[in-house]
Amino acid sequence: MIVRIMGEGQVKLADSHVVELNELDDVLLKEMESGDGPGFRTTLHALLDKVRELGTPLPDDSLEPSELILPAPDATLEDVRAMLSDGGLIPN
Rank of each mutant, 00 (worst) to 15 (best):
D26P: 03
G7N: 14
D86W: 05
I2C: 03
D86G: 13
L68W: 07
L44H: 05
D61A: 15
V19Y: 03
R81K: 09
H17K: 12
D74L: 07
A72P: 01
F40Q: 04
T42G: 03
L77A: 09
E53F: 06
V18G: 00
V80I: 09
G87H: 11
G7Q: 09
L58W: 00
G55D: 02
Q10F: 02
G87S: 15
L13E: 01
I2G: 03
V3H: 06
I69R: 11
G9V: 10
T43S: 04
V80F: 11
L84A: 10
M83L: 15
D74G: 08
L24W: 00
G9P: 00
G87K: 13
P57E: 04
T76K: 09
G55T: 01
V11E: 01
S34T: 12
V18E: 06
I2M: 03
E23I: 15
S62E: 15
S66K: 09
V27Q: 13
E64Q: 13
L47I: 03
E67K: 09
G37V: 08
K50S: 11
L68A: 08
I5A: 06
I69H: 06
L29P: 02
V80Q: 11
T42Q: 15
P38I: 05
D74I: 07
G35N: 08
V3N: 02
T76M: 12
N92D: 14
L29N: 08
K50L: 12
D15W: 00
D79N: 12
A82R: 09
I5M: 11
M6V: 13
D49V: 00
K30M: 02
L89K: 06
V51L: 05
A82H: 08
K12A: 14
L28H: 04
E31R: 14
G55F: 03
L47G: 03
S66Y: 01
P38V: 08
M6W: 04
D86S: 11
R4W: 04
D74T: 15
D15Q: 04
A14V: 01
E31M: 09
G9W: 11
A46W: 00
D36P: 04
V3I: 15
N22W: 07
S16F: 01
G9F: 14
L84W: 09
V51H: 05
D86V: 07
S85L: 07
M6R: 15
E67A: 13
E23M: 12
I69D: 11
V11H: 11
L47M: 13
G37P: 00
E64D: 10
E67P: 01
L77M: 14
K30N: 07
P38W: 12
E20P: 00
P65N: 09
S34K: 07
P73K: 07
L29E: 12
D79W: 05
D79G: 13
L48V: 05
M6T: 15
K30A: 10
P57H: 05
N92G: 12
S62R: 06
R41M: 07
S62T: 13
L84K: 11
V3W: 02
L48K: 05
K12N: 10
L54W: 00
E53A: 05
S16H: 04
I2E: 02
L48W: 08
D86N: 10
K12C: 07
V11R: 14
K50G: 00
